[in-house]
Design a protein around this nucleic acid. Structure first.
Length: 426
DNA sequence: TCTGGGGTCCTAGGACCC
DNA sequence: TCTGGGGTCCTAGGACCC
């Protein structure tokens, strides 16, 4: 009997091409076919199967610019189906949680694990087993990278994905192996290095992760702030980023959308803003918190001339998560920034200055009860949870606004709607 | 015609106080 | 000629992530 040695403290499990893989689970005929998933309003390409990547389709490309190419190459196209992806994510995460004592859900398709308390002779064999269980239970293929720090686990995961012979698992433990890998790892592929930093680093002769690791502390701190310094230590195998098992409450919450068609009327915007504000209330209540500041923004298309963009911050007399209050203040803010004769393309509502349930400051001038609104919201949330979001809503949100989403290629909600359940014929 | 959405952390600099 | 100094809090903006 032996434990996993702590020189591979962190494992990163990452679902391969997550959205595309979710669509494929329920349409086996798409196996080995090119798939793309589009952003809201079928705007940009946000996920691609390996086959689509090989065709040269890029992340973030506007779909209309590739319309002919997609058709000619018979690429399967899907609108984003967040109900499906959210549910599939939950299945993957709960499968992992069954076998792993400590994990941090990092995003919809990634989780960091700590496997050191598990009894197993070989870490790579354990990872391989996990990978197979997830695939068998959920249909989703994952890759796993193991290393002494989170940043190195990201590197290992990157390598697990890149080469077929790694079979989706890559372990990075010994110092000499780490050095060898970092020497061939582009700095722009590091977790925490985006376009701006990679341009800057390249200008200063730093092209590989090993070169970044060798850069002087003070220079890194000066130009990449403490984040850059932390990255250096993490690449040396000194862990600076702990596993966060309980997600902290959000400090800001927002809801914004690009409209299907431009909206000119104030009434149209009022519908959209009310809907976004109500959604913010829902999210606040989900994490049991209250907000004191509501920000509303509206804007026309930045790709057209006569661009107009404005926002208004409204401070509430007391912190709240009561949707009617949030809507009221948001609409007042909208009134101030609304300018007629503009073709609005996007709008949004943000709530900030968030406190948790216990921390709400009472307002001396506040009147009326606290309990009734609370019960009302609880009832509203319960119905929408059970019957689907949008079952109960406020009249001011409207019903058929031209701003609502375009989702022409939406797949059925296989896992969350009875009517969309797959029927298997014997 | 058509270009996503929702977050985090860090720093510099200004306001304000004593 | 010469215009204090140090601390805290807040905000805007820039970088990053998926």
């Amino acid at each position: 009997m032996s434990f996993i040695k702590p020189d591979v403290l962190f494992s990163l499990v990452d679902c391969n091409n997550f959205y595309a893989s979710c669509e494929r689970v329920f349409s086996p005929k798409l196996e080995r076919k090119a798939i793309v998933v589009l952003s809201n309003n079928d705007g940009c390409i946000v996920a691609r199967s390996n086959e689509a990547k090989q065709m040269g389709l890029k992340m973030g490309e506007p779909a209309y610019q590739r319309k002919d190419f997609l058709k000619k190459n018979e690429v399967a196209i899907f609108s984003s189906n967040y109900a499906l992806y959210g549910d599939m994510s939950e299945r993957v995460m709960s499968t992992l949680a069954e076998f792993v004592p400590e994990m941090e859900i990092y995003s919809i398709d990634e989780a960091f694990l700590n496997l050191t308390s598990l009894v197993h002779p070989k870490p790579d064999k354990l990872a391989l087993q996990l990978k197979e269980i997830v695939k068998k239970r959920t249909g989703i293929p994952v890759s796993i990278g193991m290393a002494p720090t989170k940043t190195l686990a990201k590197v290992a995961n990157h390598l697990a994905k890149r080469s077929v012979e790694n079979s989706g698992v890559f372990v990075l433990s010994s110092g000499s192996r780490i050095k060898e890998v970092l020497e061939n790892f582009l700095v722009e592929d590091l977790w925490g290095i985006g376009l701006q930093y990679s341009k800057f680093l390249e200008k200063n002769g730093i092209k590989t992760a090993l070169q970044l690791r060798n850069a002087p502390d003070h220079w890194l701190k000066k130009h990449l702030t403490v984040t850059g310094l932390r990255m250096k230590y993490e690449l040396q195998g000194i862990s600076c980023l702990p596993l966060e098992m309980a997600p902290p409450p959000k400090k800001g919450i927002g809801c914004s959308r690009t409209f299907r068609e431009a909206v000119e009327s104030e009434e149209g915007l009022r519908e959209a803003i009310s809907t976004f504000a109500a959604r913010c209330g829902e999210k606040l209540r989900q994490q049991n918190s209250y907000s004191k500041v509501v920000t509303v923004f509206i804007r026309t298309s930045p790709f057209k001339k006569g661009y107009y963009c404005n926002c208004k911050v409204a401070e509430l007399p007391t912190a709240t998560n009561y949707s009617p209050d949030l809507i009221r203040y948001a609409l007042k803010a909208l009134e101030i920034i609304y300018k007629p004769n503009c073709r609005y393309k996007k709008a949004g509502v943000f709530v900030s200055d968030i406190t948790t349930a216990g921390g709400v400051q009472g307002n001396l001038f506040e009147r009326g009860e606290r309990e009734r609104p609370k019960k009302l919201m609880a009832a509203l949330d319960a119905v929408n949870e059970r019957m689907g979001r949008g079952t109960l809503f406020f009249a001011v949100q409207g019903i058929e606004g031209e701003w609502r989403l375009k989702q022409e290629k939406l797949s059925p909600c296989f896992t969350t709607k009875w009517k969309d359940l797959l029927i298997v014929r014997g």
